[in-house]
Design a protein around this nucleic acid. Structure first.
Lengths: 211, 211
DNA sequence: GTAACCTAAATTGGCGCCAATTTTGGATAC
DNA sequence: GTATCCAAAATTGGCGCCAATTTAGGTTAC
């Protein structure tokens, strides 16, 4: 039970699963919305077998990151304004609902930890790839959510955050927006330190609405 | 081989996907928590092919309804007290967050529609199978959520509701509990009719906590 | 009598092949 | 010159086979 389990060990250049590789390329903007994902191409690109590609595509279709058209293939989901708005609304509901618990649970060590992750994000803005920046952002928010004390909620938000994959990439093109995000991270930590629930709620809300 | 004529292409007697069939059997309590799902057995039980079984198991593993142990197989998730509690908390956050919008959007026709679904649930308590009851309950809550005006949220709640599969089945064993659920449905519709937001919130909260 | 080891059966999981369907390119008719 | 139809190439998706791993049972040694 304590063994490290990896689904498919061969055919992959990296050690990771093919699903994650395709996912990363979608998030990084390499595979643009609308692109048809031909199985042959993916097979060659990720140096893996046909069944692995098919399983990855099926999983991504389940996650609603790609759309499956029978006998036609899979293509990356087009950004949908309505859906993006609805997902934002859900995130605001969930993430503002637990700020009270976050502030209650946050120890000085936790706050220092968060501050470090916020600074790491700032660092990646200057000297990091788009993917590293994305992951630094994810790490900060993940640590924030963990303080909410609901592991299931952490996983859920991490999951639905991926559903608006194309939105963040397109919005993050401007450096000004990213730098603003970095500042907001620090303001959030400040609010936790000051135990100001209402201020943190408003910050989280604004942060989500602006990507 | 000449006993049953089946549609070509799909090895399923029903028109539905194998994934749904396994899912329903888990929800109905036919496949109990902890059961090892041998591919051969499922192949025969649902009269389908090996790849279909494997795809279904992979999808259910993604949804965290079954657990995958490499080179050992798949087994139905054991009910986890902590997880069930966390999922309930998430449902309460989401479903109480939109009661305001529900009451705003509910037209007299919508209310009549909900009332009908609540009565259909009552009918199924007396003259219906466990599955029909489960689906009648799902239909009521789905219609309720649709009034929230966020399609993505409807899908999300429908999805996470399945994550505590074993809990409802075991709790629904007592008829008293089910009849109480039926009464609560009507009380919810009453609260919508009276446009009493706070009361509806409390009803939803209690309804979720009691399964 | 018990424990450890070894062999055989069963199960999982990767892989490639082939049929069904769609798309594309070109030829023909108007 | 353009539209329609047909054929060939490409792509998807279903299916079964075989290797790798695990499990169970029986035998042997202590």
């Amino acid at each position: 039970m304590a063994d490290v389990m990896m689904d498919s060990g061969q055919g992959v250049s990296n050690g990771r699963d093919v699903t994650d590789l395709v996912l990363q390329d979608i998030l990084a903007g390499v595979l643009l919305p609308g692109t048809w994902l031909k199985q042959i191409d993916l097979e060659r690109r990720y140096n893996c077998t046909r069944p692995e590609v098919r399983r990855a595509l099926d999983r991504l279709a389940q996650k609603r990151l790609v759309e499956h058209v029978p006998n036609r293939g899979y293509h990356v989901y087009e950004p949908d304004g309505r859906r993006a708005r609805e997902v934002s609304e859900i995130r605001i509901i969930l993430e503002t609902a637990i700020v009270g618990t976050i502030i209650q649970n946050a120890s000085p060590a936790d706050i220092a930890n968060l501050r470090g992750l916020a600074e790491q994000f700032d660092f990646m803005v200057l000297n990091g790839t788009m993917l590293e920046l994305y992951e630094a952002n994810l790490a900060f928010h993940r640590q924030l959510l963990i303080l909410g004390g609901n592991q299931e909620l952490v996983d859920l938000i991490t999951e639905i955050r991926q559903r608006t994959s194309s939105a963040p990439v397109s919005q993050w093109r401007t450096r000004a927006r990213v730098e603003q995000s970095g500042r907001e991270h620090h303001l959030m930590v400040d609010a936790i330190e000051a135990a100001d629930t209402e201020r943190l709620k408003e910050l989280v809300r604004q942060h989500i609405l602006q990507g």
